[in-house]
């Protein structure tokens, strides 16, 4: 019954417009379904199915090292999790890691974008150099920092510290310094991202508002506070959301640098779930940790998206 060409459909439309639009809408739906099917089947298979399987696994005791003790345990993994000090400390580390890296990225990125925006020459250099860190693999970045930057004495950071009179430090062996180091590495790699996004947003702001503000003798601070910041708000919130999601699931740059150590000093929740599952081979409990991480992620993104909608 469906017309073979749109020409025929157009002819039919002259007679029965209602039928025509219904047929057309139906054909559009079918076409859309056909186009979407492969991608959505793949997404179902690679995201939704693993999620369901993950939740299922988290209700089991599943120890690859001790398979004889495996079995269904219901919510026991979650009960254990509530009294697991290592879980709570990893959750705290996740929040510290995420909050500090995101704030640093946005503050430095924005300051630098404002600075570069006013530059008459040399903007190109910034745009070029800023691309370098963000295209690199976090694993390679971690490896470079762990060795050539942070190694004692000949590592450049330590060399600078010695010359600045701070003295040689065990950057990755001291629990506090190790955390500072992994935060600094993440910030180093991803601040250019915030910088590039914010610079592009700044460049897209309308010039005439600033012109008017200048005529009204608004100070530089007033212009920033009353014009730039409100106009930039959507972009800033976007950067915050995107970077928060990434920081919560940061893995490679910590894994290569400290592997969560020393001890559990840099073991954010994401790393804890990994180590529990693949180093200690407690897949069931590791799954419960991963579910906990998902819940934390959903809560935080919920808050951030509410923040975006709020005026």
């Amino acid at each position: 019954m469906a017309p073979t060409t749109d020409m025929a459909a157009a002819a039919a439309a002259a007679i029965v417009p209602n039928d025509f639009s219904r047929v057309l809408a139906q054909r559009e739906r079918r076409f859309a379904a056909a186009l979407l099917a492969p991608a959505f089947l793949a997404l179902l298979a690679t995201t939704t199915f693993p999620l369901m399987f993950l939740v299922w696994t988290s209700a089991f005791r599943m120890d690859l090292a001790m398979p004889f003790a495996n079995g269904f345990v219901g919510f026991e993994n979650y009960q254990a999790l509530l009294t697991d000090e290592r879980f709570w400390s990893s959750l705290l580390l996740s929040l510290v890691y995420t909050a500090s890296t995101v704030v640093l990225q946005v503050v430095i990125g924005l300051a630098l974008a404002l600075l570069v925006m006013d530059m008459k020459r040399g903007q190109g250099w910034f745009r070029l150099i800023a691309i370098l860190p963000v295209v690199l693999s976090p694993a390679v970045v971690g490896m470079i920092w762990r060795t050539f930057m942070l190694a004692p004495e000949f590592g450049i950071v330590d060399f600078l510290a010695i010359n600045a009179g701070i003295g040689s430090k065990n950057w990755l062996g001291d629990p506090l310094l190790a955390m500072v180091s992994v935060i600094a590495i993440h910030t180093w790699q991803w601040t250019p991202f915030a910088f590039m996004v914010l610079l592009a947003s700044l460049a897209a702001l309308p010039e005439d508002i600033y012109e008017a503000a200048r005529l009204d003798r608004a100070t530089a601070w007033q212009r920033f506070r009353r014009i730039t910041l409100p106009l930039l708000r959507p972009a800033i919130v976007m950067v915050i959301i995107m970077r928060t999601m990434v920081a919560l699931t940061a893995f490679a740059a910590i894994f290569t640098v400290t592997a969560g150590g020393p001890g559990t000093a840099t073991e954010i929740l994401n790393l804890y779930a990994y180590r529990k599952s693949f180093t200690e081979l407690s897949i069931g409990y590791g799954s419960a940790l991963a579910v906990a991480l998902l819940i934390v992620t959903v809560i935080i993104s919920g808050v951030l998206f509410a923040l975006r909608r709020a005026k």
Binding site: T47, T48, F49, T249, F251, A273, G286, V291, L293
Partner: peptide, 22 residues
Amino acid sequence: AGFYVLATQMLPPVGIIIPYFL
């Protein structure tokens, strides 16, 4: 459908790799 595509990105990779590994 659009929301679904975005929501899948929220799933932590470690939560995907555990079941996939099995």
